[in-house]
């Protein structure tokens, strides 16, 4: 939707910009702009009392800023309610409280009056920014001696690991998979049961929720990289076109090739404790 500093008509959605945020209202006349709370200036914020839907004149609404008017495009015009209905709905809600900066704010209010549906594009944009943020996390941990073989998902992967003849390799594989579970939960909020894991032709396991790469070092360190873009991890050997860092204790070369900036999360497992020891940044 476009916003222009043009003359307003009754039922128009109007807004002002305060810092990096907008305050919205429904224009009825120069003496009546209906809004959820006063514009959040420092002075208004200091006022006591619950935030409520109220009417002010246009100057109080504008508080010295430029007033912009919504110019819905053709498809939005089809969805918008008649102007009289917008005004009727706004007036009917005068005095209502229950303000919430994220879930019930001034933009939700005006959208509901104009389109019949509450929404907040500012909240949607910020949520999108969070969900689409670049993620590339590497979890490193010492491999304990005797890793429990239970709670490994999916069952097919558990059977594969249980079938590894060499006890040390089997132990490493179990721990790597458990570290992957922790990484998936911490970085993507999903456990392996719900990570849409499947084995591709050739034996490589992939997830429908994130990309990952596993590696272990000669001196008993496990490494898991999880990302929302392609990622490849190698401990001990250097990958081509990679970012590398040598950790001192225990000494291990961490080599990673990925699209995003990388954070390293040390998770030094002591009897499978889940303590995260620290978060460091690869430069």
């Amino acid at each position: 939707m476009k916003w222009e500093p043009i003359e307003c008509k009754a039922g128009d959605m109007v807004r002002i910009r305060l810092g990096s945020m907008y305050h919205y209202g429904i224009f009825v006349s120069e003496n009546e702009v209906i809004q959820f709370g006063l514009p959040p200036t420092a002075e208004n914020r200091a006022k006591e009392g619950e935030v409520a839907i109220l009417a002010t004149d246009i100057d109080t609404f504008a508080c010295g800023c430029i007033v912009e008017t919504a110019c819905p495009d053709r498809s939005e015009m089809k969805k918008r309610l008649p102007r009289e209905e917008t005004v009727r709905r706004a007036r009917a809600r005068l005095g209502e409280t229950g303000y919430n900066i994220i879930h019930n704010n001034c933009e939700h209010f005006v959208h509901e009056c104009v389109f019949g549906e509450a929404r907040c594009t500012q909240e949607e944009d910020v949520r999108k920014r969070w969900l689409n943020r670049p993620i590339c996390d590497i979890y490193l941990a010492r491999i304990p001696d005797d890793v429990n073989g239970e709670d490994i998902y999916p069952e097919k992967r558990k059977k594969e690991i249980d079938a590894i003849a060499d006890p040390k390799l089997r132990n490493n594989a179990r721990f790597l998979w458990k570290l992957l579970d922790l990484a998936a939960q911490r970085s993507f909020g999903v456990d392996l049961e719900h990570a849409e894991l499947k084995r591709k032709f050739g034996g490589k396991w992939v997830s429908g929720k994130f990309r990952f790469s596993l590696s272990s070092s000669e001196n008993g360190v496990a490494g898991v990289a999880v990302s929302n873009a392609d990622v490849e991890l190698s401990l001990d050997s250097m990958l081509r076109d990679s970012v590398n860092r040598t950790l001192i204790d225990p000494r291990v070369l961490v080599s990673v090739r990925g699209k995003h900036k990388i954070s390293v999360k040390y998770f030094w497992a002591d009897k499978e404790s889940s303590t995260l020891m620290g978060v460091h940044q690869f430069e």
Binding site: G19, S20, M21, P40, R45, Y99, N100, I101, I102, H103, Q122, E123, V126, R127, R129, W130, L131, G189
Partner: peptide, 26 residues
Amino acid sequence: SSVNMLYLIIATEEVFGIYFDDIGLN
């Protein structure tokens, strides 16, 4: 900033699976 404050709250909701439904930013 007010936008980053909003970001903190929204990301917190996503990470911890909670709703900031009964508290003001102040």
